[in-house]
């Protein structure tokens, strides 16, 4: 019995250690971590259809085909337009590409719907521009914002 207990405790400790090593709390200035899964990165290619360029976040929509060929609408959240502008990305990077094909790099929502918190958008002219802060933490530890 004692050995079973020891084994279980050991396994539990190892599990805790593994989890602690992989899951560092990153407290952003807003609720990104509660809503989006920073351990996964996704690339969605489709037609840019709409932009909302307001605070606290820019939002934009992309119509993409899923694995079955069905068109689904993805909702992406970016940073505040003020913060985005300070990276050099401008509103016309979006508005002049409505109706064209783009690829968005994002982390997916935790609710399983077609939404993501976007990091970059690749435009038809080949430029990949920043639309949000670093969201994907799968390849590096996160830091305080």
């Amino acid at each position: 019995m004692k050995l079973v207990l020891k084994g279980i405790i050991l396994a539990a400790l190892l599990l805790l250690f593994a989890l602690a090593a992989n899951v560092l709390p990153v407290f952003a200035h807003h609720g990104f971590q509660a809503e989006y899964d920073g351990s996964k990165v996704i690339y969605i290619t489709g037609t840019l259809t709409k932009l909302e360029w307001e605070n606290p976040h820019a939002y934009f929509w992309v119509e993409a085909k899923d694995a079955t060929g069905k068109v689904t609408t993805w909702t992406f959240e970016g940073a505040s337009p003020i913060a985005v502008k300070r990276t050099g990305t401008v509103r016309t990077d979006f508005t002049s590409n409505i109706g064209k094909t783009v690829t968005v790099r994002a982390v997916p929502g935790k609710d399983g719907t077609t939404k993501g918190a976007a990091e970059t958008i690749k435009l038809p002219d080949g430029r990949e521009v920043v639309v949000g802060g670093k969201r994907f933490f799968g390849d590096a530890k996160g830091g305080e914002y």
Binding site: N22, S39, K40
Partner: peptide, 28 residues
Amino acid sequence: YVFIAISFLAVLYMLSDSARAQAGSGQV
């Protein structure tokens, strides 16, 4: 029991490894 614990850890490591792989290159 030590074997079980080690296997558990190995599985966890592999799972976390596959999560990273799923992400693709992760390069922007």
